[in-house]
């Protein structure tokens, strides 16, 4: 019985260590910062990383070509804005003034190159359904 308990403890520890390693490996590149435009522009260390930004779509310079799978727009924060170029399927709710989430990386010219674009619904519905693309299984 004593021997069995030791065996079980050893097996349990092995499993926990394996799961711990998997969690560590997953955490290394399994997350991105999820910040607002102002916070992003102020944190220069984030500019070299892939991040997820939240903001409003500006009316100025708004271009959306659903047929060409391309959009360019200004992502508005509280006091600043960031030019964004997105390539991919355009969600139906994407339009000026819409609240969106984009994911991508800043290029050397200071334009945010996004490959994920999600729109948030207006607050009419409690069930806050987003339209999303390029994600999930």
């Amino acid at each position: 019985m004593q021997k069995m308990t030791i065996k079980l403890i050893f097996a349990g520890l092995t499993l926990v260590m394996a799961a711990g390693y998997l969690a560590y490996a997953g955490l290394k590149d399994g997350w991105v910062y999820h910040v607002e435009v102002d916070q992003y522009l102020a944190a220069r260390e984030m500019h070299t990383q892939r991040v997820r930004l939240v903001g409003k779509v500006g009316e100025e310079n708004f271009k959306s070509d659903s047929a060409g799978l391309h959009a360019s727009f200004q992502l508005l924060g509280e006091g600043s804005q960031l030019p964004v170029v997105y390539r991919g399927a355009i969600p139906e709710l994407f339009k000026p003034e819409a609240e969106v989430v984009v994911e991508g990386k800043l290029d050397p010219l200071g334009v945010f190159q996004a490959d994920v674009l999600m729109t948030k619904c207006a607050s009419k519905y409690e069930s806050e359904a987003h339209t999303r693309v390029n994600e999930g299984l």
Binding site: G26, L27, G30, V32, R52, G136
Partner: peptide, 10 residues
Amino acid sequence: TMQQNFYNTA
């Protein structure tokens, strides 16, 4: 934000 990569790996 956690991405699916985390879950797929872990």
